[in-house]
């Protein structure tokens, strides 16, 4: 198999076969996690820098764990990019990292396009996008696809309902790309103020009524509602959001029997999700966390393990 993706920046040019190959490789990585000795020497001697300009716990920890299980050397570099001009800082940081001998950089940044920018500035190192602005979060989307694929080996023709703040969500954008490529039909729901203007260009439909959106869905995907959005006046209150769009047993019962409930985390109980759903049998939220490690291991291995460009 020839692996064509040097960096993982977004999923724009990922074909169905690329995604399916990755999911298969992730499955074999997943099996490692159950073993008494989880660590394998595949990336011994490679230096990976986790460069986080935005707060993130699970993505960073998940990447770090994946890197360590493959025996890479890991450096965590936290930076707050708020006070300095982003372009300058990122470029200088890129050069610094390369001078240190980094083989790969995982970057999380508040500005859309920063992962692409970093990849252009780095001559040698491979870049993994850990989330940039509202643009893309490719590893999250791939771990979501892996989680769904484990329950539904054929995702073709499945219905997925995505509820919540799509407008500000890089997760939603990336998930839409992956799940559409795998043949899912996607319906968005949530307050209209939290929907992007270009819903149609994403190849999905918008249904203001969450009950209709969830009806007969195979996957109910809930997005995190950020408290700041209420202060921006995009919806009246968290309680009102919960009342209308919060996933409770009644709403989820409209979906197909055995439908999966997913959420990128961290969850806001009693806002976008009720505890009965978050902790219920249909919830795949903790499986998503585990999938994250397996999928990131597979990506690290595929981009770093083989021949270096």
């Amino acid at each position: 198999m020839e692996w064509k993706h040097r960096h993982v920046l977004d999923l724009k040019d990922w074909k169905r076969e690329d995604i399916l190959f990755l999911l298969d490789q992730a499955k074999n990585m997943d099996n490692l996690i159950d073993r008494p000795i989880k660590k394998v020497p595949a990336l011994r001697g490679k230096l990976v820098v986790n460069l986080f300009f935005e707060a993130s716990t699970r993505t960073r920890v998940s990447f770090e764990l994946a890197e360590k299980l493959l025996s890479a050397d890991v450096v965590n570099w936290s930076a707050s990019g708020s006070s300095v001009s982003k372009g300058e800082t990122l470029r200088d940081t890129a050069w610094t990292l390369e001078a240190m001998g980094a083989d790969a950089v995982v970057v999380r940044h508040g500005a859309s396009g920063s992962a692409h920018y970093l990849a252009r500035k780095l001559k040698r190192a491979v870049v993994f996008n850990g989330g940039d602005g509202a643009y893309s979060h490719p590893t999250q989307a791939l771990l979501d696809a892996y989680t769904a694929w484990k329950s539904f080996p054929n995702l073709e023709g499945r219905k997925m309902a995505i509820l919540g703040d799509v407008l500000h969500s890089r997760v939603a954008r990336s998930d839409i790309q992956v799940f559409r490529t795998l043949g899912c039909e996607i319906v968005l729901s949530g307050p209209e103020t939290l929907m992007p203007f270009d819903v149609k260009s994403l190849g999905v439909t918008y249904e203001p009524d969450p009950w209709k959106a969830v009806k007969n869905a195979d996957i109910v995907y809930l997005l995190r509602i950020q408290r700041e959005r209420q202060e921006e006046g995009l919806f009246p209150s968290l309680d009102e959001y919960h009342l209308r769009f919060g996933a409770d047993e009644k709403l989820v019962s409209k979906a197909k029997e055995g439908a999966l409930v997913m959420h990128p985390g961290p969850i806001n109980r009693r806002v976008e999700i009720d505890s009965s759903i978050a902790d219920g049998t249909q919830s795949r939220i903790l499986q998503q966390v585990r999938s994250g490690v397996a999928v990131r291991m597979a990506l690290l291995y595929l981009c770093l393990g083989g021949v270096m460009a």
């Binding site: 490789q25 074999n28 083989g306 270096m308």
Partner: peptide
Amino acid sequence: TLYRDDLTLLHDHPVVHSTS
């Protein structure tokens, strides 16, 4: 595959198969 000593020398990317 994950234990090979020639990963960086290979041109075809070695595919990981299952261990059980």
